[in-house]
Amino acid sequence: MQAFVKVRGIAVPLAASNIDTDVIMPKQFLKGIDRSGLDRGLFYHLRFDEQGSPRPGFILNQAEWRDAAFLIAGPNFGCGSSREHAVWGLMQYGIRCIIAQSFAGIFFDNCARNGLLAIELGEEEVRRLLDLVSSPADNVLTIDLNNETICGRGLEIDFEIDPIRKDSLLKGLDAVGQTLEFRDEIRTFERNYLRENPWLEQK
C-alpha cells in the first residue's frame, strides 16, 4: 500500500452530495480481472460525452484542475455499490486524498486499504475549502497527515483521523501481513468458537 505523509497538490471542488460509486466508476469498467485501465473510467459519464470526447464543462477537463491530487465533496461520498474499482480509479488518476462532509462506510474502508486518505470535515469547513479552491489561483493545498492539517492560501484547517488508520497510512502497511502476525490467536479463537457453536463446522 502506498504511504501518505505530506502531499501538496491541486484540489478539485465537487460540491454535490451522494456521489455514488456508479458515478465514480461506471459498470463498463468493472469487467476486468485486474486493476488496470481504471483511470480512464473515473467519472466517465461526467468526463466524456457519448462519442468519448471530453466534456469541456466538467472540472477535471479544465487545465487548471486536470492534474488534481485532492477532491473536495459534499456529504455521503462513495455511497452505493461496494466496488473497490472506484478507489483504484481515483488513485490511478492521481487522487491522493478526498475531503468530504461524510463518506459511505464501505468506500471509507476501501480508501484506507489502498492508502487513499479520506478526511471528514464539518459542513462549514468543507464550504470554506470549496470556496477557496474554486478559484484556480488558490487551488493548491498541502495536506500533512502527521500534523493532521490542511493548508491553503490564508487558511489552515485541522482534521482528525483514527490513530490506527493514521499509522497504517503513514507507513503504507500491508494489512493482511499484519493480521497474520496474530495467526495463533485467530486459530485459538476459532477452535473455541467452533467448539461452542458446533453447527458452524459443517456446511
Binding site: S82, R83, E84, V87, G105, I106, F107, D109, N110, R113, N114, D162, I164, A175, V176, T179, L180, R183, I186, E190
Partner: peptide, 21 residues
C-alpha cells in the same frame, strides 16, 4: 451481514477476520 471491498475480501480469505470498527 455487511459489504466489503476487494482488499477486505482478500483479508478475509487469508485470515478469516476483518479489521472492524
Amino acid at each position: 451481514g455487511f459489504g466489503i471491498g476487494t482488499s477486505d475480501i482478500e483479508h478475509y480469505l487469508a485470515t478469516q477476520t476483518l479489521i472492524y470498527k
